[in-house]
Amino acid sequence: MEQEQLQVSTEILPDGVGVISASGYINNEGGQAVADAVERLLEEGSTTLLVDLSGTRIINSIGISILLEILEKLLDASGRLAFCNLTPTIAKTFEIMGLAQYAGIYPDRETALGALGSHGGA
């Protein structure tokens, strides 16, 4: 199940938006890896964050709980969090668990960055 191996990378775009790309199984370890990436970006001053989940096909409620904690922390820091490239099932679980109420959900990175007021890397 190589496709479930978690890979997380981060970048900060020229206009300050932090992008976290995560692929693989978002369970407790996967969720924590994303949380650690968020922490690093916050320390670098980026409070508008986009989590790109292309490559993530399976997720569990423990992983989503950790994403909820990230969201709370970011809201407390007056930041913004958005997600893009979710599978329909992952998008549905985000809605059920309330994540979609506070975080933007977008079909792809370009749309998400536009909604976040970012010009991307251009």
């Binding site: 409620s61 423990i62 989503i64 709980s65 909820l68 904690e69 969201l71 709370e72 809201l75 059920i96 668990m97 309330g98 994540l99 109420q101 506070y102």
Partner: peptide, 13 residues
């Protein structure tokens, strides 16, 4: 309702 903000119980879904 969403369990974001103010509710400790984020697990049990």
């Amino acid at each position: 309702a969403s369990r974001v903000h103010g509710c400790a119980a984020k697990r049990g879904w």
